[in-house]
Amino acid sequence: MKRYVDNAATWLSVANIVVVLVFLIFPIAVAVTMSFDAREYLGRFPPPEYSLRWYKHFFSDDYYLTGLATSLRLALITTIVSTTAGVSAAITLDRYAGPGKQALESLFLSPLIVPAVVIGFALLLFFANIGVFDGFTRLLGGHIIITFPYTVRTTLAGLVGIRKTLTEAAMSLGATERRAFWDITFPLARTGIVAGAVFAFAFSMDDVAVSLFLTSPDTYTLPVAMVSMMRTNFDLTIAAAAVLLMIFTFALILVLDRTIGLDRLIGRGVFRS
């Protein structure tokens, strides 16, 4: 009887995995397939004919290209600023053992639990009150706020297990505190730092809720442009744009792997004492 129960549990687990994989992959497969649809309208799946018309339309549409350029520039600056600030905050929290440490950490991570719509609206009012009306500046401030907690959290995870005696030993041998950080702490925490940077870039490229409140008529991101086109002139150019975003992410990972190496860039795991 026990054997039958074990077999049933195994098959149930396999079926659950298959269902989850189908649920995750099928929508992506549909979007990729429909982006090659030759029809001028959104019809039934699968399409009877295929073409590159929607990709040609994307690269000939200044509205989408402006949004893509803004998204890339915004994501790059956001990643640099958010990672720098997040690593500094995480190291401070890791070394600080006084009162209020948990409150400070909760404050740094609070954007994770505050609804993005609330953050976007609050920032819109804040920037209006201080006289900041430049769309890119407002978007940059909003994206730094929503990505900062990820860099803090992942860096803290990377710092777990790194013994303080390693840094102290380096400093006792003549290294400055800055040199000890770059030679000892950073290599061991590199996995968490790079993971936070990747999260920051991905969330900045993908954000809609906060960006909708902070855009201006001349400065908007690609996701905002896609949402706007869905409301005004819905066509399968949106599917082509989504596929191009996926291709860009895959190409970025491939280039990093071929030029630097993901093992070298990210590291081989979190250090444990």
Rank of each mutant, 00 (worst) to 15 (best):
K2P: 00
T147Q: 04
K56D: 13
V117S: 14
A241Y: 12
L265N: 01
R178T: 09
T151G: 10
S204I: 06
S106T: 12
Y64W: 13
L109H: 08
L140R: 04
L12Y: 03
T66D: 05
V118P: 06
L166V: 04
F201Q: 02
V22L: 14
W54M: 12
F136R: 01
F136G: 02
M205C: 12
L125P: 06
F203D: 06
T137F: 08
H143R: 02
I25K: 10
G120Q: 10
P217C: 02
A9E: 13
V22N: 07
V20S: 11
A242H: 10
T191F: 04
L252A: 13
T137C: 05
A189W: 00
T155C: 12
A170C: 06
V19M: 15
L139K: 06
L12V: 05
A225T: 08
R73Y: 10
Y55E: 12
L244A: 15
F127K: 00
R264L: 09
G141R: 03
G135P: 08
A90W: 00
I184P: 01
L254E: 11
S51H: 05
L68D: 08
F136D: 03
S216P: 07
P149F: 01
N7M: 05
L21C: 14
I266K: 01
F271T: 12
F201G: 02
L104F: 15
S228A: 15
A116W: 09
Q102F: 07
S106A: 15
T78K: 02
M226G: 04
L236H: 05
R53G: 11
N233I: 12
F136M: 08
L24V: 14
D206I: 01
P115Q: 09
T10A: 07
T155F: 02
S82N: 05
G135R: 12
I253M: 13
L65G: 11
T92C: 03
F59C: 14
A175T: 02
P48E: 15
P149E: 04
L252H: 05
L139F: 09
L52S: 14
L159I: 09
G67A: 11
Y64I: 03
V87H: 03
Y55G: 13
F136A: 07
L52E: 12
A116F: 07
F248Q: 11
S106N: 15
L156T: 13
G269L: 11
G158W: 06
T185W: 01
T154Y: 10
L24C: 13
P99V: 12
F250D: 08
R178C: 00
A202Q: 10
P149S: 09
E105G: 12
E105A: 15
M1W: 11
T221I: 09
F127T: 04
G267C: 04
D207M: 03
G43H: 09
P149W: 06
T33F: 08
K101Y: 01
T237A: 11
D218L: 05
F248I: 14
F127R: 03
G131P: 13
T237F: 04
F58C: 11
F181P: 01
V118R: 11
L236D: 07
R138D: 05
F127S: 01
